[in-house]
Amino acid sequence: MTIGEVRENPAPAASVVRQPTFVVEPSKGWLALNLQEVWEYRELLYFLAWRDIKVRYKQTILGAAWAIIQPFFTMVIFSLFFGRLAKIPSDGIPYPIFSYAALVPWTFFANGLTQSSNSLVASANLIKKVYFPRLVVPISSILSGAVDFVLAFIVLLVMMVYFDTLPTWNIVWLPLLLLLALVTSLGVGLWFTAMNVQFRDVRYAVPFLVQAWMFATPIAYPSSLLGEPWRTLYGINPMVGVIEGFRWALLGVNTAPGPVIIISSLVSVGLLVSGAFYFRRMEKTFADVV
């Protein structure tokens, strides 16, 4: 042990120059994303998502059924009010399955967004006491919603059988569409969760935003209500691409959403990249402020 220059220096010439494993120093400006490190911590990512899944429906009576109840009853309500009463068109598909096919990815997106926005604040005790790449926290909170998605999706398949709807071959695109929903919710979630550390206003703003966003997305109505070029521009809302894509792939709606999806994907990736950099930039304040 030496105190700076006061005590003796340990054999300067003899020791080989070693690279430090890491250096602690003040950072400035924009930082690299360091995704390599996130990958190294993939087991933590897995365990945190696993914990969220395990814990989510503990001490509830209905348990995992909640994953189905939420989109299913929204579908029932939509069918009654928008389908029956308002007679909103549904691209020639039975209204219940038309809306439910949209509600399944939407619920995944909305829950992912809500949970990732709160994720850093909810993990404050971890962030203050343990080091790990902070990106792991919002990512894991979104991944844990995948189980809910699968459950709700099984109900969708059952409904398709009931309504005698055959999926098209386009179903192979489904995983990519789901990825698009995930990227969108992570992108927005990264922005919000980083802001939430500093300003708890975000917690109150997010439910409101999710609600507004739902009406801005063609869930209760088809995007075909809009004429071109507006329908394509509508894709600036990335969830438009996801929802239209789901209906196209599963229900065979004849309005292939090609250009819409391209715009949605670009916006979505833009959100993710900017969100990730913003997150990294704010990261240094997390442990002190949260």
């Binding site: 890491f22 003040p26 343990v130």
Partner: peptide
């Protein structure tokens, strides 16, 4: 600071090896 939970305001520290805190 040494375990990278929070950043220093000034100065630096070099750490050689895998750290558990």
């Amino acid at each position: 600071v040494l375990s990278r939970i929070t950043e220093p305001t000034r100065g630096r520290a070099e750490v050689y090896g895998r750290v558990g805190s």
